[in-house]
Protein backbone atom coordinates (compact mmCIF):
# COMPACT_ATOMS: atom_id res chain seq x y z
CA UNK A 1 0.00 0.00 0.00
CA UNK A 2 2.80 2.34 0.93
CA UNK A 3 4.55 1.60 -2.33
CA UNK A 4 1.42 2.43 -4.33
CA UNK A 5 1.16 5.68 -2.41
CA UNK A 6 4.73 6.59 -3.23
CA UNK A 7 4.35 5.81 -6.91
CA UNK A 8 1.18 7.87 -6.95
CA UNK A 9 3.05 10.82 -5.48
CA UNK A 10 5.70 10.52 -8.17
CA UNK A 11 2.96 10.30 -10.79
CA UNK A 12 1.34 13.47 -9.54
CA UNK A 13 4.68 15.26 -9.49
CA UNK A 14 5.40 14.09 -13.02
CA UNK A 15 1.98 15.25 -14.18
CA UNK A 16 2.38 18.64 -12.54
CA UNK A 17 5.84 19.00 -14.01
CA UNK A 18 4.55 18.14 -17.49
CA UNK A 19 1.73 20.67 -17.32
CA UNK A 20 4.10 23.29 -15.95
CA UNK A 21 6.53 22.55 -18.78
CA UNK A 22 3.78 22.93 -21.37
CA UNK A 23 2.70 26.18 -19.74
CA UNK A 24 6.22 27.55 -19.58
CA UNK A 25 6.89 26.36 -23.11
CA UNK A 26 3.81 28.12 -24.40
CA UNK A 27 4.63 31.36 -22.56
CA UNK A 28 8.34 31.32 -23.34
CA UNK A 29 7.86 30.06 -26.89
CA UNK A 30 9.48 33.11 -28.53
CA UNK A 31 12.73 32.42 -26.64
CA UNK A 32 12.72 28.66 -27.03
CA UNK A 33 12.32 28.61 -30.79
CA UNK A 34 14.57 29.66 -33.61
CA UNK A 35 11.85 30.21 -36.21
CA UNK A 36 8.60 32.12 -36.15
CA UNK A 37 5.67 29.65 -36.10
CA UNK A 38 4.21 31.07 -39.29
CA UNK A 39 7.49 31.56 -41.16
CA UNK A 40 7.75 29.53 -44.36
CA UNK A 41 11.47 28.96 -44.78
CA UNK A 42 11.36 27.52 -48.29
CA UNK A 43 8.11 25.81 -49.24
CA UNK A 44 9.80 24.02 -52.15
CA UNK A 45 13.09 22.75 -50.73
CA UNK A 46 12.33 22.50 -47.01
CA UNK A 47 8.76 21.15 -46.90
CA UNK A 48 8.17 17.83 -45.12
CA UNK A 49 11.67 17.64 -43.64
CA UNK A 50 11.92 14.81 -41.11
CA UNK A 51 13.36 15.65 -37.69
CA UNK A 52 16.97 16.83 -37.87
CA UNK A 53 19.44 19.04 -36.02
CA UNK A 54 18.13 22.12 -37.83
CA UNK A 55 14.48 21.24 -37.22
CA UNK A 56 14.19 19.12 -34.09
CA UNK A 57 10.68 17.96 -34.94
CA UNK A 58 10.89 18.39 -38.71
CA UNK A 59 8.88 20.75 -40.91
CA UNK A 60 5.32 20.69 -42.22
CA UNK A 61 3.96 20.96 -45.76
CA UNK A 62 4.67 24.72 -45.87
CA UNK A 63 8.24 24.26 -44.54
CA UNK A 64 7.25 25.71 -41.18
CA UNK A 65 9.15 24.50 -38.13
CA UNK A 66 7.02 21.92 -36.27
CA UNK A 67 8.77 22.57 -32.94
CA UNK A 68 7.83 26.28 -33.07
CA UNK A 69 4.31 25.47 -34.15
CA UNK A 70 3.98 22.93 -31.37
CA UNK A 71 5.05 25.44 -28.70
CA UNK A 72 3.05 28.36 -30.08
CA UNK A 73 0.18 26.00 -30.85
CA UNK A 74 -0.06 25.14 -27.16
CA UNK A 75 -1.33 28.68 -26.59
CA UNK A 76 -4.27 28.33 -28.96
CA UNK A 77 -5.10 24.75 -28.09
CA UNK A 78 -4.83 25.09 -24.32
CA UNK A 79 -6.61 28.40 -24.44
CA UNK A 80 -9.49 27.06 -26.48
CA UNK A 81 -9.73 23.81 -24.52
CA UNK A 82 -9.60 25.44 -21.09
CA UNK A 83 -12.11 28.12 -22.06
CA UNK A 84 -14.42 25.58 -23.68
CA UNK A 85 -14.25 23.23 -20.69
CA UNK A 86 -14.87 26.08 -18.26
CA UNK A 87 -17.95 27.14 -20.18
CA UNK A 88 -19.33 23.64 -20.58
CA UNK A 89 -18.56 22.50 -17.04
CA UNK A 90 -19.97 25.58 -15.33
CA UNK A 91 -23.12 25.58 -17.34
CA UNK A 92 -23.60 21.82 -17.25
CA UNK A 93 -23.10 21.54 -13.49
CA UNK A 94 -25.39 24.46 -12.83
CA UNK A 95 -28.19 23.07 -14.98
CA UNK A 96 -27.79 19.53 -13.65
CA UNK A 97 -27.58 20.43 -9.98
CA UNK A 98 -30.36 23.02 -10.09
CA UNK A 99 -32.60 20.52 -11.86
CA UNK A 100 -31.94 17.97 -9.13
CA UNK A 101 -32.91 20.41 -6.38
CA UNK A 102 -35.67 22.27 -8.20
CA UNK A 103 -39.39 21.51 -8.14
CA UNK A 104 -40.53 18.72 -10.38
CA UNK A 105 -41.79 20.91 -13.26
CA UNK A 106 -38.56 22.92 -13.50
CA UNK A 107 -36.54 19.72 -13.30
CA UNK A 108 -38.53 18.25 -16.18
CA UNK A 109 -38.22 21.44 -18.21
CA UNK A 110 -34.45 21.72 -17.73
CA UNK A 111 -33.75 18.09 -18.42
CA UNK A 112 -35.97 17.92 -21.50
CA UNK A 113 -34.31 21.06 -22.83
CA UNK A 114 -30.97 19.33 -22.26
CA UNK A 115 -32.23 16.22 -24.05
CA UNK A 116 -33.42 18.40 -26.90
CA UNK A 117 -30.03 20.01 -27.36
CA UNK A 118 -28.31 16.65 -27.02
CA UNK A 119 -30.52 15.23 -29.72
CA UNK A 120 -28.90 17.56 -32.25
CA UNK A 121 -25.64 15.91 -33.31
CA UNK A 122 -22.89 18.26 -32.13
CA UNK A 123 -20.95 18.22 -35.34
CA UNK A 124 -24.09 19.12 -37.29
CA UNK A 125 -24.81 22.01 -34.95
CA UNK A 126 -21.23 23.26 -35.29
CA UNK A 127 -21.45 22.92 -39.08
CA UNK A 128 -24.71 24.84 -39.19
CA UNK A 129 -23.39 27.64 -37.00
CA UNK A 130 -20.06 27.89 -38.81
CA UNK A 131 -21.82 27.81 -42.19
CA UNK A 132 -23.85 30.82 -41.08
CA UNK A 133 -21.16 32.72 -39.22
CA UNK A 134 -18.06 32.03 -41.37
CA UNK A 135 -14.55 31.84 -39.95
CA UNK A 136 -14.64 32.28 -36.19
CA UNK A 137 -12.16 34.16 -34.05
CA UNK A 138 -10.41 32.50 -31.14
CA UNK A 139 -12.81 33.26 -28.25
CA UNK A 140 -16.08 32.68 -30.16
CA UNK A 141 -14.73 29.33 -31.34
CA UNK A 142 -13.94 28.29 -27.76
CA UNK A 143 -17.31 29.47 -26.46
CA UNK A 144 -19.06 27.72 -29.34
CA UNK A 145 -17.27 24.46 -28.50
CA UNK A 146 -18.12 24.91 -24.83
CA UNK A 147 -21.74 25.86 -25.32
CA UNK A 148 -22.38 22.82 -27.50
CA UNK A 149 -20.72 20.46 -25.02
CA UNK A 150 -22.36 21.15 -21.66
CA UNK A 151 -25.40 18.89 -22.03
CA UNK A 152 -23.57 15.66 -21.26
CA UNK A 153 -22.21 17.15 -18.04
CA UNK A 154 -25.68 18.35 -17.10
CA UNK A 155 -27.17 14.90 -17.52
CA UNK A 156 -24.45 13.11 -15.62
CA UNK A 157 -24.63 15.69 -12.82
CA UNK A 158 -28.40 15.42 -12.66
CA UNK A 159 -28.21 11.64 -12.36
CA UNK A 160 -25.46 11.72 -9.79
CA UNK A 161 -27.21 14.42 -7.76
CA UNK A 162 -30.35 12.32 -7.74
CA UNK A 163 -28.32 9.46 -6.33
CA UNK A 164 -26.60 11.70 -3.76
CA UNK A 165 -29.80 13.43 -2.64
CA UNK A 166 -31.22 10.00 -1.89
CA UNK A 167 -28.40 9.30 0.60
CA UNK A 168 -29.37 9.66 4.29
CA UNK A 169 -26.90 12.51 4.81
CA UNK A 170 -28.40 14.81 2.21
CA UNK A 171 -31.94 13.64 2.77
CA UNK A 172 -31.49 14.69 6.36
CA UNK A 173 -30.09 18.06 5.41
CA UNK A 174 -33.05 18.61 3.13
CA UNK A 175 -35.52 17.59 5.80
CA UNK A 176 -33.90 20.06 8.20
CA UNK A 177 -34.79 22.83 5.75
CA UNK A 178 -31.29 23.79 4.65
CA UNK A 179 -31.76 26.44 1.92
CA UNK A 180 -31.16 25.03 -1.55
CA UNK A 181 -28.31 27.38 -2.42
CA UNK A 182 -26.45 26.18 0.67
CA UNK A 183 -27.40 22.63 -0.07
CA UNK A 184 -25.90 23.10 -3.52
CA UNK A 185 -22.61 24.73 -2.55
CA UNK A 186 -21.92 23.01 0.77
CA UNK A 187 -23.26 19.54 0.29
CA UNK A 188 -23.96 18.67 -3.30
CA UNK A 189 -21.03 20.20 -5.19
CA UNK A 190 -18.31 18.72 -2.96
CA UNK A 191 -19.88 15.30 -3.32
CA UNK A 192 -20.04 15.76 -7.07
CA UNK A 193 -16.32 16.45 -7.38
CA UNK A 194 -15.29 12.91 -8.41
CA UNK A 195 -17.87 12.96 -11.19
CA UNK A 196 -16.89 16.47 -12.22
CA UNK A 197 -13.19 15.67 -12.29
CA UNK A 198 -13.86 12.85 -14.72
CA UNK A 199 -16.28 14.99 -16.70
CA UNK A 200 -13.77 17.84 -16.92
CA UNK A 201 -10.91 15.70 -18.14
CA UNK A 202 -13.27 13.98 -20.55
CA UNK A 203 -14.50 17.37 -21.81
CA UNK A 204 -10.91 18.57 -22.13
CA UNK A 205 -9.92 15.39 -23.88
CA UNK A 206 -12.89 15.85 -26.23
CA UNK A 207 -12.30 19.56 -26.90
CA UNK A 208 -8.75 19.15 -28.18
CA UNK A 209 -9.48 16.50 -30.83
CA UNK A 210 -12.72 18.28 -31.73
CA UNK A 211 -10.73 21.37 -32.61
CA UNK A 212 -8.61 19.14 -34.81
CA UNK A 213 -11.71 17.52 -36.29
CA UNK A 214 -13.03 20.93 -37.26
CA UNK A 215 -9.73 21.63 -38.99
CA UNK A 216 -10.15 18.34 -40.90
CA UNK A 217 -13.57 19.46 -42.11
CA UNK A 218 -11.99 22.75 -43.20
CA UNK A 219 -13.17 24.85 -40.26
CA UNK A 220 -11.35 25.61 -37.01
CA UNK A 221 -8.57 28.01 -36.02
CA UNK A 222 -7.82 30.77 -38.54
CA UNK A 223 -4.68 30.24 -40.61
CA UNK A 224 -1.76 30.76 -40.18
CA UNK A 225 -2.19 30.62 -36.39
CA UNK A 226 -0.81 27.31 -35.15
CA UNK A 227 -2.81 24.90 -33.02
CA UNK A 228 -2.24 21.23 -32.24
CA UNK A 229 -5.40 20.54 -34.15
CA UNK A 230 -4.42 22.16 -37.43
CA UNK A 231 -0.91 20.70 -37.14
CA UNK A 232 -2.51 17.26 -37.23
CA UNK A 233 -4.90 18.16 -40.02
CA UNK A 234 -1.96 19.15 -42.21
CA UNK A 235 -0.75 15.55 -42.50
CA UNK A 236 -4.15 14.27 -43.55
CA UNK A 237 -3.31 12.99 -47.02
CA UNK A 238 -0.19 10.99 -46.11
CA UNK A 239 -0.36 10.22 -42.39
CA UNK A 240 2.15 7.38 -42.50
CA UNK A 241 4.76 9.11 -44.64
CA UNK A 242 4.76 12.27 -42.54
CA UNK A 243 4.61 10.64 -39.12
CA UNK A 244 6.39 13.45 -37.29
CA UNK A 245 3.55 15.85 -37.97
CA UNK A 246 1.16 13.37 -36.33
CA UNK A 247 3.23 11.81 -33.56
CA UNK A 248 4.44 14.97 -31.80
CA UNK A 249 1.10 16.82 -31.54
CA UNK A 250 -0.62 13.56 -30.53
CA UNK A 251 2.00 12.99 -27.81
CA UNK A 252 1.44 16.53 -26.56
CA UNK A 253 -2.35 16.17 -26.58
CA UNK A 254 -2.24 12.77 -24.89
CA UNK A 255 0.38 13.88 -22.36
CA UNK A 256 -1.61 16.96 -21.43
CA UNK A 257 -4.83 15.01 -21.10
CA UNK A 258 -3.18 12.29 -18.98
CA UNK A 259 -1.46 14.83 -16.75
CA UNK A 260 -4.66 16.79 -16.26
CA UNK A 261 -6.38 13.56 -15.37
CA UNK A 262 -3.72 12.56 -12.84
CA UNK A 263 -3.97 15.95 -11.17
CA UNK A 264 -7.75 15.76 -11.06
CA UNK A 265 -7.54 12.37 -9.38
CA UNK A 266 -5.05 13.68 -6.85
CA UNK A 267 -7.27 16.64 -6.02
CA UNK A 268 -10.21 14.33 -5.62
CA UNK A 269 -8.27 12.24 -3.11
CA UNK A 270 -7.35 15.38 -1.18
CA UNK A 271 -10.95 16.47 -0.89
CA UNK A 272 -12.08 13.06 0.20
CA UNK A 273 -9.80 13.05 3.17
Amino acid sequence: MKEAHASRETGVRLAAAFLALVGVGALAAPWLTTHAPTAQLDPVALAWQPPSAAHWLGTDSYSRDVWSRLLFGARATMGIAVLAVTVSLTFGTLVGAVAALAPRWLDALLMRATDALLAIPRLLLLLLVVAGAGTLEFAPLAILLGSTGWMMTARVVRQDSGRLLATPHLEGARALGVPWARLLTRHLLPSLLPTLAVAATAAFAAAVPLESGLSYLGLGVRTPLPSWGNLLADAESQPLAHWWVIVFPTVMIAGTVLAANALANAMERQWRR
Binding site: T250, V257, L258
Partner: peptide
Protein backbone atom coordinates in the same frame (compact mmCIF):
# COMPACT_ATOMS: atom_id res chain seq x y z
CA UNK B 1 -4.78 5.62 -18.80
CA UNK B 2 -4.92 3.66 -22.04
CA UNK B 3 -8.55 4.67 -22.41
CA UNK B 4 -7.57 8.28 -21.77
CA UNK B 5 -4.84 8.03 -24.39
CA UNK B 6 -7.28 6.67 -26.95
CA UNK B 7 -9.60 9.58 -26.28
CA UNK B 8 -6.88 12.10 -27.08
CA UNK B 9 -6.60 10.91 -30.68
CA UNK B 10 -9.09 12.63 -32.98
CA UNK B 11 -11.59 10.15 -34.41
CA UNK B 12 -10.85 11.06 -38.03
CA UNK B 13 -7.17 10.34 -37.48
CA UNK B 14 -7.94 6.98 -35.94
CA UNK B 15 -10.14 6.13 -38.94
CA UNK B 16 -7.56 7.36 -41.46
CA UNK B 17 -4.84 5.30 -39.80
Amino acid sequence: RGAMLLLSIPDYLLALL
